[in-house]
Deep mutational scan, measured.
Amino acid sequence: MLEGKVKWFNSEKGFGFIEVEGQDDVFVHFSAIQGEGFKTLEEGQAVSFEIVEGNRGPQAANVTKEA
């Protein structure tokens, strides 16, 4: 699992990017966010995740919000 911070997330469109120190930003789709209820992320929020190869390159999977 990697750790990063949410760079930005558009809850209307359901996607955004996660910043990872020393690496390129990683695309995140709302469907990759773990948990119940409305799936969104806040700018600057700490998250842990895995990287998988998507249709358009690397993207986040199994995203969990850090306490």
Rank of each mutant, 00 (worst) to 15 (best):
M1H: 11
M1R: 14
M1V: 14
M1W: 12
L2P: 04
E3G: 13
E3W: 15
G4A: 04
G4V: 01
G4C: 02
K5W: 07
K5F: 06
V6E: 00
V6L: 04
V6C: 04
K7W: 03
K7M: 03
W8R: 04
W8L: 03
W8A: 03
W8H: 04
W8E: 02
W8K: 04
W8D: 02
F9L: 03
S11P: 10
S11G: 14
S11A: 15
S11I: 13
S11Y: 14
S11C: 05
E12Y: 15
E12C: 06
E12Q: 15
E12L: 13
K13D: 04
K13E: 05
K13L: 11
K13V: 09
K13S: 09
K13A: 10
K13G: 05
K13M: 11
G14F: 02
G14Y: 02
G14K: 03
F15C: 04
F15L: 07
F15K: 02
F15R: 03
G16E: 00
F17I: 06
F17D: 00
I18K: 00
I18R: 00
I18F: 03
I18M: 03
I18H: 00
E19I: 14
E19N: 09
E19V: 13
E19T: 15
E19G: 11
E19S: 14
V20F: 07
V20A: 08
V20S: 08
V20P: 03
V20Q: 08
E21S: 15
E21T: 15
E21Y: 11
E21L: 13
G22C: 05
G22S: 08
G22E: 07
G22L: 06
G22N: 12
Q23W: 12
Q23E: 10
D24Y: 11
D25K: 04
D25W: 05
D25T: 06
D25C: 05
V26S: 03
V26D: 00
V26G: 00
V26C: 04
V26Y: 05
F27E: 02
F27G: 01
F27M: 03
F27A: 02
V28P: 00
V28H: 00
V28A: 03
H29L: 07
H29Y: 05
H29I: 05
H29E: 03
H29K: 03
F30S: 08
F30H: 11
F30W: 14
S31F: 06
S31E: 06
S31Y: 05
S31C: 05
S31P: 05
S31R: 09
S31I: 06
S31K: 10
S31Q: 07
A32Y: 05
A32T: 06
A32L: 03
A32M: 07
A32P: 01
A32W: 04
A32N: 11
I33K: 01
I33T: 02
I33P: 01
I33L: 09
Q34I: 15
Q34V: 15
Q34T: 14
Q34K: 14
G35R: 04
G35C: 05
G35E: 11
E36A: 11
E36C: 05
E36D: 12
E36V: 09
G37H: 06
G37T: 06
G37R: 05
G37N: 07
G37K: 07
F38V: 08
F38Q: 08
K39T: 06
K39E: 05
K39F: 05
K39A: 08
K39M: 08
K39P: 09
T40G: 08
T40D: 07
T40W: 10
T40Q: 09
T40H: 13
T40C: 06
L41Q: 01
L41F: 03
L41R: 01
E42Q: 13
E42I: 11
E42V: 15
E43A: 15
E43R: 15
E43S: 15
E43W: 14
E43D: 13
E43I: 14
G44H: 09
G44D: 06
G44I: 02
G44K: 08
G44W: 06
Q45G: 07
Q45W: 15
A46P: 13
V47R: 00
V47E: 00
V47I: 08
V47W: 00
V47P: 00
S48H: 15
F49K: 00
F49M: 05
F49R: 00
F49P: 00
F49S: 00
F49T: 02
F49W: 02
E50G: 08
E50D: 11
I51W: 06
I51N: 03
I51G: 02
V52S: 10
V52P: 02
E53S: 12
E53R: 10
E53W: 14
E53G: 10
E53M: 13
N55D: 14
N55I: 13
N55F: 13
N55M: 13
R56V: 09
R56D: 09
G57I: 04
G57K: 06
G57D: 03
G57A: 06
G57F: 05
P58R: 12
P58A: 13
P58H: 08
P58V: 11
Q59A: 10
Q59V: 10
A60Y: 01
A60K: 01
A60C: 04
A60I: 02
A61V: 10
N62Y: 07
N62V: 07
N62H: 10
N62K: 14
N62M: 11
N62L: 08
N62F: 10
V63M: 03
V63R: 01
V63G: 01
V63T: 03
T64S: 12
T64M: 11
K65M: 12
K65T: 10
K65L: 14
K65I: 15
K65R: 12
K65A: 12
K65P: 11
K65C: 04
E66Q: 15
E66A: 15
E66D: 14
E66H: 15
A67D: 08
A67P: 13
A67W: 11
A67M: 10
A67L: 11
A67R: 12
